[in-house]
Design a binder for these strands. Structure first.
Length: 335
DNA sequence: AACGCGGGGGG
DNA sequence: CCCCCAGCGTT
């Protein structure tokens, strides 16, 4: 892995942000793209947020990209490009929490601070047979304490990366091959037969259903309308098409009668069709989006509020969009 | 202390 | 269908 070949704090920081809640296989191409496009923290700081989000497109948890950019500007402009060099100071950076601060401090500055990520929770909970839920306040404190106690003092960078890799390759979530594990003679959960039930994690959230009705304007077959998502919620600062969200499935008439469409132009000057009757169900970890796309062909410029902008269709790929819309754009516009 | 936040991959 | 992933910020 390329981030194992450097101790440049910029690259270690970048790799750790990308890898938060993200598998190495998914994050690696993004790491390569970011280091290519932005070789230094100054290059990243000088970019527009929209460009950063575009390069981040598809990786999810977009607050990571926004915080990444904010922190890059802070380090480039206020700290003159010099990263904080301790766990305590790193922790103050936006988007850098306990795990990431420990990772950077140990890998770049040889500080003896343990990383406690999903892998480490699993290894420690099994080896010491600890059933405290890893996502409870108590569990977080308990595992951090244990991690500090058992941490090797000599090579913190190697130790931290090793215990994570041990969790990823040997002490795997499913079907760990304990018979060949080098720790099997002292692993408490293996002795007690609790390996498959550890680590303990508290309840999962209920998934919410939402209905997204996207309006795809085709003005003279050359322009379309998009707007940026603002405020709270999913996909903050990414772009999307004008959206009618509803509590339930709606019919074509509902969309045609909706004020967004009614006020945009007269019914006689447009033609509304459904792209695909079948819902496109986009699954996020906490909500399912039942999505339909409505194609609105017209020769007149629609009157929409100031948050919307009309753009040439051949420029649509320059805007950061969620995967759901990226897939639609690929299949519908074929650009 | 609980919740919101993406998307992909494996069993 | 489920769970998990080199977690963090907000409420």
């Amino acid at each position: 892995m390329p981030w194992r070949e450097t101790t440049d704090p910029y690259r270690i920081w970048l790799s750790e942000i990308i890898l938060q809640q993200t598998r190495v296989a998914q994050g690696l191409p993004y790491y390569l793209a970011f280091t290519e496009q932005y070789p230094t923290v100054f290059d990243l700081a000088n970019a527009e947020e929209e460009q950063v989000l575009k390069l981040w497109q598809g990786l999810g948890y977009y607050s990571r990209a926004r915080n990444l950019h904010t922190t890059a500007k802070y380090i480039a402009n206020d700290l003159h490009g010099v990263f904080p060099a301790s766990y305590k100071e790193l922790l103050k950076l936006k988007g850098v929490g306990d795990y990431t601060a420990s990772a950077i401090a140990s890998i770049c500055y040889d500080e003896v601070v343990p990383v406690v990520d999903g892998n480490v929770y699993r290894v420690l909970s099994r080896y010491f047979n600890i059933s405290t839920p890893i996502n409870s306040t108590e569990g977080i404190k308990e595992f951090k304490k244990v991690a500090i106690e058992v941490m090797e003092q000599e090579e913190p960078a190697t130790y931290n990366q090793a215990i994570m890799e041990f969790g990823a390759l040997q002490c795997k979530p499913q079907n760990p091959y304990c018979i060949v594990c080098p720790l099997n003679d002292s692993c408490e959960s293996l002795q007690k037969g609790t390996v498959t039930s550890l680590p303990v994690k508290l309840k999962k959230l209920k998934v919410k259903k939402r209905y997204f009705n996207y309006l795809i304007f085709l003005v003279d077959n050359k322009h379309t309308v998009i707007r940026q998502r603002i405020g709270k919620g999913i996909w903050q600062n990414l772009y999307e098409f004008p959206l009618i969200e509803s509590d339930n499935e709606v019919k074509l008439e509902y969309v045609e009668e909706h004020e967004i469409l009614k006020e945009s132009m007269s019914a006689s000057s447009r033609n509304v069709t459904v792209y695909e009757e079948e819902f496109k169900i986009h699954k996020l970890s906490h909500q399912h989006l039942y999505t339909r796309f409505y194609i609105i062909r017209t020769n007149k410029s629609p009157k929409l509020d100031d948050s919307c902008q009309m753009i040439p269709i051949d420029k649509i790929k320059e805007y950061p969009v969620p995967v759901l819309l990226g897939n639609f754009i690929d299949s519908f516009f074929k650009v």
